[in-house]
């Protein structure tokens, strides 16, 4: 087995008295792609936010390459640089050009050479087919283009781990594919990723391991074939059935 990159150990997350994550544990190995699925409100976003130290946890621990992730830590920005995150809502900085959106953090946070960063940013934009939009502003892009830029922005920090929180959920259907393709390419190039998604076909294609979350706990965990073809628990079965039902309805329309 390859080295463990991220270790989530028995974490508890509460909002007031509402326990949202109740003893979650799993490891992520270098180069592994984890897909997290589960019904809405089960704590998927919260889990990713805890890993990126956007939320404090009330119990357990999260360690990245042996270093504890703790929102109260002084080294927080150093740790966050190693974890890239793309959110569901388009979160590009509206007052900056596409290129500046990508280069600002490597320049200001990592103090890298602006020329070199720009070169890397343009090369990455080229890879997602947006080289010609480098000088556009976010408002001039489609949703799918914005999400691809957001992915490039995270990539340009050269993070060890990438987190994706339903990045295609707000997109028009015809734009979903272009974003998923970028993520498939990243997986193929060996990136370590944790992906929250409702695109089950995509999950099946990209996941090394699927984690099924329900009511703040890991109910089932395994390789995608076993999970999608032969779910072990009733809850996973029921969850997967909701997608079947939807596809039948669409078919009859």
């Amino acid at each position: 087995m390859k080295d463990i990159l991220l270790k989530v150990d028995n974490i508890i997350k509460r909002f007031d008295n509402n326990t949202v994550l109740n003893g979650i544990s799993f490891d992520v190995h270098k180069g592994e792609v984890i897909v997290v699925v589960g019904p809405s409100g089960c704590g998927k976003s919260t889990l990713l936010r805890c890993i990126n130290a956007l939320e404090p946890i009330q119990g357990g621990s999260i360690t990245l390459e042996g270093e504890t992730i703790n929102p109260a830590d002084k080294n927080l920005t150093a740790l966050r640089q190693k974890v890239g995150m793309v959110f569901q809502s388009y979160d590009l900085f509206p007052h900056l050009s596409v290129l500046r959106n990508i280069t600002i953090a490597p320049e200001k946070v990592q103090k890298r050479n602006p020329k070199e960063v720009e070169k890397e940013a343009l090369a990455l934009l080229e890879r997602v087919g947006l080289r010609d939009r480098a000088n556009s502003f976010p408002r001039e892009l489609s949703g799918g283009q914005k999400q691809r830029v957001a992915i490039v922005r995270a990539l340009c920090m050269n993070p060890d781990l990438l987190l994706f929180d339903e990045v295609t959920a707000a997109l028009d259907p015809e734009m979903v594919r272009e974003v998923l393709d970028v993520m498939l390419n990243l997986a193929a190039s060996g990136r370590t990723m944790i992906i929250v998604t409702h695109e089950m076909q995509f999950a099946k294609a990209i996941a090394d391991r699927v984690i099924f979350l329900d009511a703040g706990q890991i109910v089932e965990e395994g390789d995608p074939i076993s999970f999608f073809e032969h779910p072990q628990t009733d809850r996973a079965q029921k969850f997967l059935n909701t997608f079947e039902f939807e596809s039948v309805k669409n078919h009859e329309k």
Binding site: L54, T77, R80, Q81, D91, M157
Partner: peptide
């Protein structure tokens, strides 16, 4: 808030976030 969180997730400090992300948007 998502603007602030995006900046944080890129490793920006609260000062950098204020200076490069929050203030330019707030002023306009």
């Amino acid at each position: 808030d998502i603007q602030v969180e995006s900046a944080y997730s890129l490793g920006m400090s609260p000062m950098q976030t204020a200076f490069y992300i929050i203030l330019p948007q707030a002023i306009s």
